[in-house]
């Protein structure tokens, strides 16, 4: 049984926004979120009832993000050039901009794999399908990405995980 689209938004809005932030950074995430949910709403009546809605949304978000990355021709910042002092973008509702900036410094594949596995909770098999490539490559990209994050995000070691 297909639920009203409002339920889909209610349930997945936060996850999709975190995925967009991880892949694009805070400033471009809102637009990618909007484009993702509009595209999803357009296609929703045709979505098979058995589909995994979250994986479907992440796939759409991935495509929107790739478009943005391509248009902006944005090069990932080299990790060793991260600003010494954390940037405060001061965007309303950006929550933890430093974290998202650190994530943004990762190479595309690592960033996407981290976002889809650690933020969206997708299994590596699904992520391999979204990214193209093997399951093992997806797993490795996520692992390498997390390793860089642990090294470069000050909050990870200082603040630790919120209990």
């Amino acid at each position: 049984m297909k639920r009203p689209f409002e339920k889909v938004v209610e349930e997945h809005a936060g996850t999709v926004l975190r995925v967009c932030r991880a892949v694009l950074g805070v400033s471009d995430a809102d637009d990618a979120w909007s484009e993702t949910f509009i595209a999803a709403m357009r296609a929703y009546p045709e979505l098979p009832e058995t589909a995994n809605v979250e994986a479907w949304l992440v796939t759409i978000a991935h495509r929107k993000a790739v478009d943005v990355l391509r248009t902006a021709k944005r090069q990932p910042l080299p990790v060793d050039e991260l600003p010494e002092a954390p940037t405060t973008l001061g965007l309303p509702g950006s929550d933890d901009p430093d974290l998202w900036e650190t994530v943004r410094a990762l190479p595309d594949k690592q960033r996407q794999a981290v976002a889809y596995h650690y933020v969206a909770g997708l299994p590596y098999a699904e992520i391999a399908e979204i990214l193209g490539g093997t399951v093992e490559a997806a797993r490795r990209a996520a692992a390498d990405g997390m390793k860089s994050l642990r090294k470069n995000y000050p909050g990870a070691s200082v603040k630790g995980a919120p209990s």
């Binding site: 309303p92 929550d95 994530v103 976002a115 650690y118 642990r150």
Partner: peptide
């Protein structure tokens, strides 16, 4: 990776989601 994963999964501010909605 639990600590970084927890940070990545922290809830998004409700006002932001209301504005996007």
């Amino acid at each position: 990776n639990a600590d970084v994963a927890a940070l990545l999964s922290a809830p998004v501010n409700a006002e932001t989601l209301a504005r996007l909605h």
